[in-house]
Design a protein around this nucleic acid. Structure first.
Lengths: 152, 152
DNA sequence: TATTGTTATACTCTATAACTATA
DNA sequence: TATAGTTATAGAGTATAACAATA
């Protein structure tokens, strides 16, 4: 017979970290990332590759350097992510007419289609994970997080 | 002469991810983690070891398994973290009188002292990072994040 | 001179399985 | 039979430096 594990409860109420925004951010992100990766797995994507595909599917026509900045990745990591997506036929590297050093990353039609399907699954998973927040609270959280994520 | 990089701006305004709570969470966390690790480096700590030291400094008397659950780490990672802190004389492993399998992790006096100093530095760094949020907004963000971080 | 993309390398982090001692 | 801690190991993620082509 297992006891009710009172120690665990004590830790859960510990004041040392519960008031720490950085810690809450880290823990919420860990849960979100795990749920997101699980939702994206059937599409052969992870959070990273999904993000690259998302930006490649839009109108921004990002160079790899833009992806690195926006996603806070090292340019060398972007190389590997784009290599992988390109090998799967989901994105292409197009020469940037205004800068011959740069590759513009663009989704193929299949890539754009897969992104739309994956996006729906990701949104559903997020909705489930945040089920106990109201729409207004989700919107407020998004506004506050955006100010932390994009200062200045 | 460098141009104003209009592409970057276009990506920053891309609607594909900007509305994605998971993405905002990931990006905000990445910035927070980088700032936190930088602030903790002078103390020989990182976010992980700081969190362990924080819980060991409180009254919770956590077993390693409690630390693993609360910090969302694998128990084998906790072993390495506690080994490191113990080698530095900041925490000790005490036998749990109620369960001879379990080690209770407790801060030494030096550990508790270092934590207090590190905590101040971490709080200052966080305050700087979140300078454009009001106290009320910070509190609201904490409430919302706590509900994501500790569902149920 | 500086920047984009690339490669190579090393380092950290993470996930998994197996083992021991206890429960 | 299950759990706490440990060990080992492999894989993923991250950071760094160097290079060729181009700006």
């Amino acid at each position: 017979m297992t006891s009710a594990r009172p120690r665990s409860t004590a830790v859960a109420g510990a004041p040392e970290l519960a008031a720490d925004l950085s810690f809450l951010l880290a823990r919420a992100n860990a849960l979100s990332l795990a749920a997101g990766n699980a939702a994206l797995a059937p599409f052969g994507l992870k959070a990273r590759s999904y993000s690259v595909l998302a930006l490649a599917s839009g109108d921004a026509r990002p160079a790899q350097r833009d992806l690195a900045e926006y996603l806070r990745l090292d340019p060398s990591q972007v190389v590997a992510l784009v290599d992988d997506l390109q090998a799967k036929g989901l994105v292409t590297r197009e020469p940037d007419p205004t800068d011959r050093r740069a590759n513009v990353v663009v989704a193929t039609p299949e890539g754009a289609r897969l992104f739309r399907d994956a996006e729906r699954a990701a949104r559903d998973a997020e909705r489930t994970l945040h089920a106990d927040l109201s729409d207004a609270e989700r919107a407020e959280l998004g506004r506050l997080l955006a100010r932390l994520a994009f200062p200045g």
